[in-house]
Computed example of a mutant assay.
Amino acid sequence: MNAYQKGMDAMQAGNYEEAITHFRQALESAPDNPLLYTNMGSLLARAGEYKQALACYQRAIQLDDKQAGAYYGAGNISYNVENYQEALQFYRQAEAVGMDDQSLHMMIGMCEYQLDNLPFAMARLQRAVELDPDDEDARFYFGLTLAKSELIAEAIEAFQTVIGKNEGHADAHYNLGIAYFSKAENKKALDYFNKTLELQPDHYLAAHGKKQVKKATEN
């Protein structure tokens, strides 16, 4: 337990290599502790050692099939390698054993968005926003889902809220440009494309959007 506590302290301080060393020592004394494997998996994932991290999560689940954190961590690994269907299965398993927090709703929503299951994505991302109104990623992807569902007014509101919290969010400006262009409000669209390029000069989609607005205006 002393090694475990040292590992937790090191992890919270951001000293991941030191934390891994302590957790390995703890596992020598308690090789059947599922929580240790879950924490080790989290540390290895942060270090980019995904294969080893997944093995730790799987071992944690073998020892305790109600280890929600292990399911969630395995889901994150699958999501990072763009295996969205597998990630969704892991996240749903985490939920089935009792996990119910903002990050889980966010990641389920992200999977559903990537899989083009828009109604499910919208419900989950909306819940994530409700649980943490300051999470700009959740609100941004909620806006993307609304826009993709052709709920343009609602999408505009979501993107404007993101910008209200982070004026430098280039992609929120870009998507506002797209939303206003779809409404044939070309002046507003051009303003947002210009702002995007001011924030991120190499944003080629905004540059293309700007050309499309000018072409539509000329016509």
Rank of each mutant, 00 (worst) to 15 (best):
G75A: 09
A128K: 05
A128T: 07
N175D: 03
G98K: 06
A170P: 02
D134H: 11
R127C: 11
E112C: 11
N194P: 07
M110I: 08
K187I: 02
F193L: 07
Q160M: 08
A94V: 06
G177V: 04
M106L: 11
A138F: 02
L176D: 00
M106N: 06
K187F: 00
R92A: 03
D116E: 14
L115R: 13
L190V: 03
A170S: 13
V81P: 11
A153I: 14
R92V: 03
G143I: 01
V81A: 11
E157V: 04
R92W: 10
E82M: 10
A184H: 09
D135L: 01
I163V: 02
K165M: 10
R92D: 14
L151Q: 13
L88F: 08
A184S: 15
Q89E: 12
E95T: 12
L104V: 15
N76P: 09
Q93I: 06
K148R: 15
N83C: 12
E86M: 12
E112N: 14
S149H: 10
L199E: 14
Q126Y: 13
A172G: 02
F142C: 05
D137L: 13
A94F: 08
Y113S: 00
D116K: 11
Q102I: 05
F90I: 05
G168S: 03
L115I: 11
Y113P: 04
N83W: 11
V97W: 08
T145E: 04
L144A: 09
V129Q: 05
E95H: 07
E198G: 04
Y84M: 03
H169F: 13
R127I: 05
A121P: 02
Y174P: 08
N80L: 14
T196R: 00
F193H: 09
A96W: 06
A128M: 01
M110A: 07
H203E: 06
D137R: 15
Y192H: 15
E150V: 10
E95M: 12
L197D: 04
S149L: 08
G168R: 06
L131I: 11
S78G: 06
Q200A: 14
H169R: 08
A172F: 02
R139K: 09
K195R: 08
M122L: 14
A179Y: 03
F90G: 04
M110L: 15
E185L: 12
N194E: 10
L131T: 10
Q114M: 05
Y141A: 00
E150N: 12
N117S: 15
T145N: 03
S78N: 06
Q89H: 05
A179I: 00
K183Q: 14
Y113A: 00
T161I: 07
H173N: 07
F140E: 06
N76S: 03
D100F: 12
T145K: 02
L151D: 09
A184M: 09
L144G: 04
F90A: 05
E136L: 13
E112T: 11
S103L: 13
Y180E: 02
F159E: 01
N175G: 04
L104K: 03
L176T: 00
A87S: 13
L146P: 00
M110C: 07
Y141L: 04
G109E: 02
F120C: 08
G143R: 08
